[in-house]
């Protein structure tokens, strides 16, 4: 294994630079997210960083109910990227109850709950 930061720190540093990348296994060709030391499909440590297309499909959605004075409702989703990996995120630019499994979305870098950079999604085609 190489010296230097581990995959979590590399991912975070890329994100802070405005870059969203996932890993791809040189052993079996699988894409990998979240970032790992070895490929969970084949065990290879030959993982390289690649840019995903950013396109994905909603797998599941919940709306967290919160009083308006505490910021109001928000959505939490699981997105299946076209590369075959899943991640948690949220969808902006659409009413919460219009988000459902099957919705096509595309990734960008927005702001997470802690104010740091986070991968978020919008409906593909820019639905308002």
């Amino acid at each position: 294994m190489e010296k230097g930061p581990g995959p979590d720190a590399v991912f975070a540093a890329k994100l802070a630079d405005g870059v969203f990348e996932i890993q791809k296994c040189g052993g079996c060709g699988s894409h990998v997210f979240h970032p790992r030391v070895i490929c969970p499909a084949c065990g290879s440590a030959d993982l390289e960083w690649v840019a995903p297309t950013g396109r994905g499909t909603i797998y599941a959605r919940t709306i967290v109910r919160r009083k308006p004075e505490r910021g109001g409702d928000y959505n939490v989703v699981l997105v299946d990227l076209d590369e075959g990996v899943r991640m948690m995120s949220r969808v902006d630019g659409i009413a919460h109850d219009e988000i459902a499994a099957g919705l096509k979305v595309s990734a960008s870098i927005g702001e997470g709950a802690d104010g740091g950079p986070a991968v978020v999604f919008r409906p593909e085609g820019g639905a308002s």
């Binding site: 997210f33 979240h34 797998y59 599941a60 959605r61 919940t62 967290v64 928000y74 939490v76 699981l78 991640m87 948690m88 995120s89 949220r90 459902a100 499994a101 099957g102 997470g112 709950a113 802690d114 740091g116 986070a118």
Partner: peptide, 23 residues
């Protein structure tokens, strides 16, 4: 990799499973 989206722990995890089962 979930914290930036503030799911309720552990409730939202089960809500996502319920949503998927309904779908």
């Amino acid at each position: 990799y979930e914290a930036p989206y503030k799911p309720l722990f552990p409730l939202s995890s089960y809500a996502l499973a319920a949503d998927r089962h309904m779908t």
